[in-house]
């Protein structure tokens, strides 16, 4: 039932949010897209040469550092899915055992309260070749063990992935646990009565039932990966060389390091497009689910 009203208060109350949305989001996105077509450097220059409007984008895709950034986006994206799998396993174990649920949950979730800067610094310390875990491994007898991942361009990303998994798996565990708990308890009872084995129950019944939770996790993870910045600054600051650059790092470096706002904007626009590519399926799936639930309700 809609409520009728004839006063101005609600409209006036919405003005600040509308202004912020119009200026800080819609307007700013438009501005950035526009600037990405110009030759602005330190300060905005609003003339566009339409013959070479894609100049910044052409430069971008010729830039090796950008190629590395995109590759790393993929690497971190794929690597971090381990956090979802790990989170699901943890949730499934906790849900099955129930003993110590509160304790384990508290432990698994605390990294979320820690900022990525702090998380990155701790991991950086543990990856320290002379005094960190590698040294510890050598001392306990694994003379050939190598845990100096951050020092090599080939392995630095794995270090970042490991830290990301450490930081994020508790979050996915929480989402998965919520998903598991929302499954009708009668299904567990039915499976017990039918004598279905643990593995078959999960693979054939539970995981398919939780496909939306998995999908939500995957989308949230992708969005987080696109935004990844703090952890890189804290762990490698992009290095060695530019081997751990990511799009967010690239864009901010173009702005603050190279003082080139047009170039930075172009990188940001590509980030927006990547986000949209992840976000649109989310919207479609949400809409589809809502419609399906309505259909079931009828």
């Amino acid at each position: 039932m809609a409520i009728r009203w004839s006063h101005w208060s609600p409209r006036i109350a919405l003005v600040p949010a509308l202004v912020i949305t119009a200026v800080a989001f819609v307007g700013s996105i438009g501005w950035t897209i526009y600037i990405s077509l110009t030759r602005s450097r330190r300060f905005p220059d609003y003339t566009i040469n339409w013959d070479e409007w894609a100049r910044q984008y052409e430069r971008l895709f010729k830039d090796d550092a950008w190629a590395v950034s995109l590759k790393n986006l993929l690497v971190l994206g794929i690597g971090s899915t381990l956090a979802i799998i790990f989170g699901f396993i943890l949730a499934a174990m906790i849900e099955r055992e129930k003993r110590g649920e509160g304790f384990f949950r508290t432990i698994f979730l605390y990294p979320l309260a820690v900022s990525l800067i702090v998380a990155g610094l701790v991991w950086r310390w543990m990856f320290n070749p002379a005094l960190g875990i590698e040294n510890f491994l050598h001392q306990i007898g694994f003379a050939n063990a190598s845990f100096n991942w951050l020092a090599s361009p080939d392995t630095a990303m794995y270090g970042i992935i490991l830290a990301s998994i450490w930081h994020g798996s508790g979050f996915y565990m929480a989402l998965m646990l919520a998903g598991l708990k929302s499954i009708n308890t009668e299904i567990w009872s039915a499976a017990r009565l039918d004598g279905v084995s643990f593995w078959r129950l999960y693979i054939e019944i539970i995981i398919p039932m939780m496909r939306f939770t998995f999908l939500t996790c995957a989308i949230l993870l992708s969005l987080g990966v696109v935004k990844a910045y703090d952890i890189i600054v804290a762990m490698t600051n992009g290095g060695p060389g530019s081997s751990t650059w990511m799009p967010a790092f690239f864009a901010l470096n173009a702005y603050a390091g190279r003082s080139n706002i047009a170039y930075a904007s172009a990188a940001a626009v590509i980030m927006l497009l990547i986000t949209a590519a992840i976000f649109i399926p989310l919207v479609l799936i949400t809409a589809w689910r809502v419609r399906r639930q309505e259909a079931i309700a009828q």
Binding site: A17, T21, A24, S28, T32, L252, A268, L272, T275, V283
Partner: peptide, 22 residues
């Protein structure tokens, strides 16, 4: 408006950062 807000919640910060600085 809600849909716009929903979209805005996902926007990467870099796309609005420079105009916000200005």
């Amino acid at each position: 408006f809600l849909f716009i807000l929903f979209t805005a919640a996902f926007v990467p910060f870099q796309i609005i950062m420079i105009p916000l600085i200005i």
